Computed example of a mutant assay.
Amino acid sequence: MTLTLSNIAKTFPDGTRALLPTDLEIGQGEIVSLLGPSGCGKSTLLRIIAGLETPDAGASVMFEGEDVTRQSVETRRIGMVFQSYALFPNMSVRGNIGYGLKMQKLGRAEIDARVNEVIALCRLDAQADRAITALSGGQRQRVALARAVAPRPRVLLLDEPLSALDAALRAELRDELALLLREFGITAIFVTHDQTEAMAIADRVAVMRQGEVAQIGTPEALYRNPATGFIARFIGDAMPLEGRIEADRLYMPGGVLDLPKSAEGHEVLVRPEDIRLDPDGPVAARVEAVTFLGTHYRLALAGATQGVIFALHTGLSAPRPGDDLRLSIASEALLILPRERTA
């Protein structure tokens, strides 16, 4: 199902503008993430799509060409997965999945057929008759997905579906969620503040800021071609390199970098993975802290630019705090982006 949003805005009674006029089109079977910091409007947009919030006048929510802007939640035929999963602890897995189908007053044979279908799809056969309280966090997530998909909704909405899990389980279930959503073949929109989660699961990511979509694109496009410094910081942890820009050179406290193009009036950013330890490098820095992360070390470096920047180092050993070293950054790895006006 295609979903078309036009001029979607939301102003609360106290005058707070939670969402500025927003347009968005989502294709059949596409998975789109609404990504952004707390308070950026992503959950408000999701709730408007669901029918849980009423948008400002002039908005249009279209499901496959049908205007559902004023329709109730019940008539929109959506599936929802919440952060808490909201499962019924007094019911079995099978009972939870079939609950929504009973509310639709379907026949017993059809209910059983659909429940069995999604139990198999979500690999819950061994847990079908267990109580919800006897399940792991990952199994509960699959039950929540199965329950949302069983009524065959037109669109599936997920609100921070992994945030209630611990870090190790969240990483494990991220890939499983991506696989399940693609197996469902259903148009899906999910809200998250975790850039790794958004990039791992979504076909496209809509990065939101201060009530509007700042940029939308594939994870690769957002990473390689961010439109602003905010996008570069949010997708890939880019860091600003402060200094004096003269045409295509950046003069920093630690040394001078050649830029890929003239950057006057712009800001220069770099990602941690693009900073190299190089004894002949043009930039001097001092190691402030070293963190071992298994596959690499994360180095906090001072003196190169104003403030501290971070580099990822994959050697078998790392410098020690207090060490002086030299850095190099390939010119093509530098991001030259318009300097954003501060509010």
Rank of each mutant, 00 (worst) to 15 (best):
T4Q: 15
P13Y: 00
P13N: 07
A18H: 02
A18D: 09
I26D: 09
E30K: 03
I31Y: 04
P37H: 13
C40I: 06
L46G: 05
R47K: 13
G51N: 13
A59M: 11
F63H: 15
D67V: 09
T75G: 08
M80E: 02
V81W: 10
F82V: 05
S84N: 11
P89D: 06
R94F: 07
I97Q: 09
Y99K: 06
G100Q: 07
L101C: 08
K102H: 14
K102L: 10
M103E: 05
K105Y: 00
L106K: 10
G107M: 01
A113H: 07
R114Q: 11
V115F: 03
V118Q: 12
L121H: 12
L121E: 12
D125L: 08
Q127I: 02
A128K: 09
I132C: 12
L135S: 06
S136T: 13
V143T: 14
A146V: 04
R147L: 09
E160G: 14
L165G: 03
D166P: 11
D175M: 10
D175F: 09
D175Q: 12
F184C: 04
I189C: 10
Q195W: 06
T196L: 13
E197G: 04
M199H: 04
I201E: 15
A202V: 03
R209Q: 11
R209L: 08
G211A: 02
P219Q: 00
E220R: 05
A232C: 10
I235G: 02
P240D: 09
P240I: 03
E242S: 08
A247T: 03
D248V: 08
R249E: 15
R249C: 05
Y251A: 15
S262T: 06
E264S: 06
E264N: 12
E267F: 04
V268L: 01
D274V: 04
L277Q: 11
P279A: 12
D280Y: 04
G281Y: 06
R286P: 00
R286A: 14
E288H: 11
L293D: 01
G294D: 07
T295Y: 05
L301S: 14
L301Q: 13
G303C: 10
Q306K: 08
F310Y: 12
A311Q: 00
L325R: 14
R326S: 14
T342G: 03
